[in-house]
Design a protein around this nucleic acid. Structure first.
Lengths: 343, 343
DNA sequence: TATTAGCACTCGGAAATGATGAGTGCTAAT
DNA sequence: ATTAGCACTCATCATTTCCGAGTGCTAATA
């Protein structure tokens, strides 16, 4: 099907897409001939456009407006029409500038990254924190809060931290807690959180037979402490999309905001991206989420040499500046990876 | 000035305000007579309304629309017209239902509370986390991350946790770190973070003379670890205000969202509320923030017996259902206080 | 055969027009 | 002090008109 496209029709399609990306208005045959150096008359272009519509690359909002690229057209555009471009110097600098760890916890770094993505792309930045369960446990700590409440602190290899308050029936002394955490740190060293889960179950079997009550309690405690929610998503720069003409009307705006209020929906989408390493692009309806109509997502995974960690990217309208944004996302993912690598 | 208000004009003003709160439309003399059991003709009401406008309680959007309450009117309304009402049973239950600590860290509890506030009030919920600096330090811990990076974990009395990654030039062993944190926990026990700051400076003087290099380094390290950003604000339920007719037009909507994207602005406002314990109400322009035009904030402080901790509340349009929301905020603050008290 | 010029037609959007009705202020009567 | 009556104002909505950008088709052209 694609093969049917002559060189000329590709050029025209590309011109239309790029025009539409900047104007957000349906583009007519006239504009195509004028703004791009094609030596063709509007009439010819019209014929070609008519063919392109037939093939499903263009759509007309109504009889006498220009034409608008479909999702299929954008797909073709990013897949084959779009040349690889480098990140502009200034953008590269802005990205670099935002990449510094010191004095912030991981959460802040990621949020900051999300904000940075939104500011250089002018769309929304999105960063999904490392999946905690897939991470290697580095450290575990109990802090007595008073009453029967204990604060558990879990630190993963990558430096992210999860806290959890658990209530116990027993009254542990500070020394008990230190001994317990020492024991557990020993026991669980080097395992991923997921593995920890299994290991604990095994050990609880053993402990039962050994009648060592403190240890057995320690095991129970730590079992409770395993985090259940383990994905955190930072979406920043929502207000950027408020300026886009396609969301100018209040109704559309509401939908979008409501959609992103519940981040849960997005997590599924991002999980898919985690699987496929590297750049990943969802255009409009391609993601099965109805709320994403009219929106595209460009993501890339960030990781250490050890294992994949998380996903970051940009959400914008389908007519987003792919040529500019793709390199940005790519470069940012690399920077963040490097940032977390040094350890 | 207020004294000039006869009983009747108060009744009429109250009627207008309450009408406007539900309809969001300018209310005319006609409506006032019809919907409320006043035995007066529209003409009479018109005269009264004219007086009220003179006094600054009402404003007319244009010549022949009804009239709209001013900020001053709302102020009078909440101060003296509004009777104290209890929280409805179902609301009380909904609030209770959301109040449970187990298995969540403090941050989650507060975010959840914010969400709950938004859902029972139908406006935006806002919760400011305890000011970390004013909190008593309970526990401090260093975790070695590899390279020269160290993760510092600070736990406050109230159970909130702050993490920070710091880089050092020295290479500490795990034992070093344990010894250092033991020493510091001893030294800083029972101090507020603010006090810790001072104490550290003093000790660094002493340590210098004693030439104990490890301790001196410990002090330096912990000095770096003191959190700088220490206020976190959770705003939930943004999409609730999308339904309000006064924000129906896209322009207004943009403003609001942009305003709340940067939470920094709000922090100042909430700090003021921290000072005055108990319920606090800002109506429209009363808060000096221009972005707050058309918005009111109802807050209350939550606290333990020890000291004030934070602020929570609801942001809505100036024509918000004060009679309903004020008790909700009040009750929630009390519940959260109790929740954190048990320790 | 591929391209182009010409022309009739379509349709959204902006501006102009007019009717409707809720609301006001004023005056005179109660 | 209150009210009925009346002329007047102005936002809102529906209707109309006009304009222009754009299309599809056909016939002429290279």
């Amino acid at each position: 099907m694609h093969d049917n496209l002559t060189e000329r029709s590709k050029q025209i399609l590309e011109a239309i897409i790029e025009d539409y990306i900047v104007t957000a208005e349906p583009v007519g045959s006239r504009m195509v001939t004028r703004r791009h150096g094609l030596n063709l008359s509007p009439a010819t272009v019209r014929n070609v456009m008519s063919d392109l519509e037939e093939m499903g690359f263009l759509a007309s909002p109504h009889t006498s407006a220009g034409r608008v690229p479909t999702d299929k057209a954008y797909r073709l555009y990013v897949d084959s029409l779009l040349g690889v471009r480098r990140v502009a110097r200034e953008e590269r600098e802005e990205i670099r500038r935002h990449c510094s760890l010191t004095g912030k916890d991981i959460g802040e770094v990621l949020k900051e990254t999300s904000r940075m993505l939104s500011s250089v792309s002018h769309y929304m930045g999105i960063v999904a924190a490392p999946r905690f369960a897939a991470n290697v446990l580095r450290h575990l700590e109990f802090v007595k809060l008073g009453g029967q409440r204990i604060l558990v602190i879990l630190v993963s290899q990558s430096g992210s931290v999860q806290n959890k308050i658990i209530e116990t029936t027993d009254d542990f002394s500070n020394e008990d807690l230190v001994r317990m955490s020492n024991y557990l740190n020993e026991l669980l060293a080097g395992l991923t959180i997921a593995q920890v889960r299994n290991r604990l179950l095994e050990e609880m079997e053993n402990a039962k037979t050994k009648y060592d009550s403190l240890l057995s309690k320690a095991l129970q405690l730590s079992q409770q402490s395993l985090p259940d929610k383990d994905s955190e998503v930072f979406i920043e720069g929502r207000s950027n999309i408020l300026d886009l003409p396609e969301f100018a009307d209040a109704g559309r705006m509401k939908e979008i905001f409501r959609a992103f209020e519940e981040k849960g929906q997005l997590v599924g989408l991002l999980d898919q991206c985690l699987g496929a390493q590297g750049i990943n692009i969802f255009i409009g309806a391609e993601s099965r989420l109805s709320q994403m109509a009219g929106l595209s997502v460009i993501t890339s995974t960030y990781m250490t040499s050890r294992n994949t960690l998380g996903v970051l990217g940009v959400i914008g309208p389908t007519r987003m500046g792919y040529a500019k944004v793709i390199p940005i996302v790519d470069y940012t993912a690399k920077m963040v990876s490097r940032l977390l690598e040094i350890e």
